[in-house]
Design a protein around this nucleic acid. Structure first.
Length: 103
DNA sequence: CGACTGACGGTGC
DNA sequence: TGCACCGCCAGTC
């Protein structure tokens, strides 16, 4: 079921507190090259009650493109701010200022 | 079975 | 340096 996404979840769990990672970087850690889209699908299948830091996953543009039907739009913003990550709201979209990339 | 879409990334212009 | 198009993997129509 989630066998293919297992390495993605494992790599996500390795992301330290207060840091973020891009889809491509996470896919690379999972052993998947250019599998950014797969990561997005994997996270979309992630339940709202998951203990994984899904909120630390952003695109390489630094924008929070996450659209979780189970989680409110500004939820990720609060989670990142709680970790010391500065978030900027731009036209209804949340951006990360000086994103500490975990590579 | 075939084509389009999608929580993206990289390269080209 | 910024914007646009193409490419990859899996899922859905």
């Amino acid at each position: 079921m989630n066998s293919t996404y297992q390495p993605i979840y494992d790599a996500l769990a390795e992301v330290p507190y207060g840091m973020v990672i891009s889809y491509g970087g996470l896919a690379k850690k999972a052993g998947l090259f250019r599998g950014a889209r797969m990561v997005g699908w994997a996270l979309s299948q992630l339940p709202a009650g998951s203990l994984l830091p899904w909120h630390r996953v952003i695109n390489h543009k630094g924008m929070l493109s996450i659209v979780n039907p189970h989680v409110h739009a500004g939820h990720q913003k609060e989670l990142l701010e709680a970790e010391g990550v500065r978030i900027i709201e731009k036209d209804g979209t949340f951006w990360v200022e000086n994103p500490p990339w975990f590579s």
